[in-house]
Amino acid sequence: MSVRDENIIEVEGLTKAFGDFKAVNEISFVVKRGEIFGFLGANGAGKTTAMKMLIGISTPTSGKAKVAGFDVFTSAEDIKKNIGYMSQKFALYDDLTVRENITFFGGIYGLKRQQIKNKSNQLIEELGLEDVKNQLVGSLPLGWKQKISFSVAMLHEPKIVFLDEPTGGVDPITRRQFWEMIYKAADEGTTIFVTTHYMDEAEYCNRVSIMVNGKIEALDTPQKLKEQFKADNMNDVFLKLARG
């Protein structure tokens, strides 16, 4: 791992309120460059809301946050150029072919035609998509969509890539392969910010934070968290926290 001592995400007292309800309640943390940062929490704990603020599609109610050096309040547009995002739906266009999808997403990130061509050739080769590159994405199995979706999020070589539950609904082998892709990206210096439900995946992260009811209740390396909560695995840590 090539984690560097340089903060790429800095969050301080970040809050998002919907009326009286605080979906995200004064959370603070930093993410280092090149780190794989696991962002855990039960459903409804506020993970997605927090992530939306960091990727610039939701304005925080209060607090401070900088992503890739840009302020979420004032420079959301600059943030968007420097991050990649993959949603839990592996959103691609089903009625476009693999190649057309890559070309389209490359295009909206402002890649040049030649760049797009090189990138998609490289991608197709790496992912072994040679046989299906001209097939509609809708006809591909979920695992492939997941890989393509991740690669598309990485197309413009972002500094940080945000993955929102990127392994939902796929089998353990595919999940394993997917984490290999994540490691490879992290090795190349990309910061990974990942939310997940799977506690075994939490073990793969450099550091994890656990959100409960809008607050970050724990944040450390998986090893130290297990020591702190006297648990054998992350699952127990999570259960102890979530039950309060």
Binding site: I83, A91, D94
Partner: peptide, 14 residues
């Protein structure tokens, strides 16, 4: 519905 709108909004497109 497909979730692609979210991806588009996260992209530099306004």
């Amino acid at each position: 519905e497909l979730g692609t709108m979210e991806i588009l909004l996260v992209s530099p497109l306004k």
